[in-house]
């Protein structure tokens, strides 16, 4: 298909560019298929991101940030400003975590912002706990490539798509939530690509040199496409199993005769027998 060839071409070109302006990962080196690279100018990109209005109107609503190298500087700034956020562990292997930024001692912000340091301060949070909490005002991710129409692409694993869909399924992301993609200019494709149905459309693309609002009419709520899970790395994740239990069997409104937890226990037992 012409679109597939095009995206592959773009990705190859972008990866070549990233080797010049990007930064290798501590462990994955230049294997760009294994991580989202930090890049020159990511600090300015972070400035631009934090200039967006959404940060001043958070209220009780939450922040989600991906565990990308390109979002590390943003994490550092939020820690320094005592803004808490939710993140996933790398590859979502150990689920979601939340960082109460006030638990990071002064002087340790840059450390806590790294993936290595994050493990010392962030606390695991279950989907059930997230579901019981406040919705998300803003979700920030890095990426491989993004089109001007706000469609991300590239040989990604689809982690952010999954994270967005999972949080949506839990009722935590509404159409007011702001989705931000932080990338280097070389990663922005000056073309309006149509995405797949399950692609997440971003609200802002932010680079070191520009802040690009994406114009869209509303946004489809994120949905996990359960049929696409088997055979992928998502199949074996604990979060996937937990999400299945939470969204496939339980009403959100509590019943008079049972607590939600008891209901979930029953559904889980039923599922186990199947």
């Amino acid at each position: 298909m012409a679109t597939v060839d095009r995206t592959t071409q773009y990705r190859e070109r972008i990866w070549a560019d990233l080797r010049k302006v990007g930064r290798p990962d501590s462990r994955f080196h230049w294997d760009l298929s294994s991580f989202i690279a930090d890049f020159e100018g990511s600090d300015i990109c972070t400035d631009r991101t934090l200039d967006l209005d959404v940060w001043r109107t958070l209220g009780n609503r939450r922040v989600f940030i991906t565990p990308d190298n390109s979002t590390e500087e943003l994490r550092k700034r939020l820690i320094a400003e005592n803004v808490p956020f939710v993140m996933t562990t790398y590859g979502i292997q150990r689920g979601f975590v939340e960082l109460d930024s006030t638990t990071v001692p002064p002087g340790e912000e840059s450390y806590a912002a790294t993936l290595d340091g994050m493990d010392r301060y962030a606390v695991p949070v279950s989907l059930g706990q997230l579901q019981a909490g406040d919705p998300f005002a803003v979700l920030v991710t890095g990426g491989t490539a993004v089109s001007m129409s706000g469609v991300r692409f590239g040989k990604g694993h689809g982690y952010f798509d999954f994270e967005y869909a999972a949080l949506s399924e839990l009722g935590l992301v509404d159409s007011d939530a702001v989705l931000i993609d932080m990338v280097h200019d070389c990663q922005v494709v000056d073309e309006h690509l149509d995405g797949e149905p399950h692609d997440v459309v971003m609200d802002y693309i932010v680079t070191p040199t520009r802040t690009i609002p994406v114009h869209r009419d509303g946004r489809e709520p994120g949905r996990i496409l359960w049929d696409l899970i088997p055979g992928t790395e998502f199949e074996r994740l604990e979060v996937t199993a937990e999400l299945r239990r939470l969204v496939q069997t339980v009403d959100k409104a509590p019943r008079a005769d049972k607590t939600i937890d008891a209901e979930r226990q029953d559904s889980f037992r039923k599922e186990e027998k199947e």
Binding site: R27, E108, G117
Partner: peptide, 28 residues
Amino acid sequence: FGLLRGYVVLDPTVIPEENILLAATLDG
């Protein structure tokens, strides 16, 4: 890690205090 980019030499006299923990990580 993996000796992929040589050896890193860290000079404590030029690393600011707020970067000491960062400098001790692989990421930093």
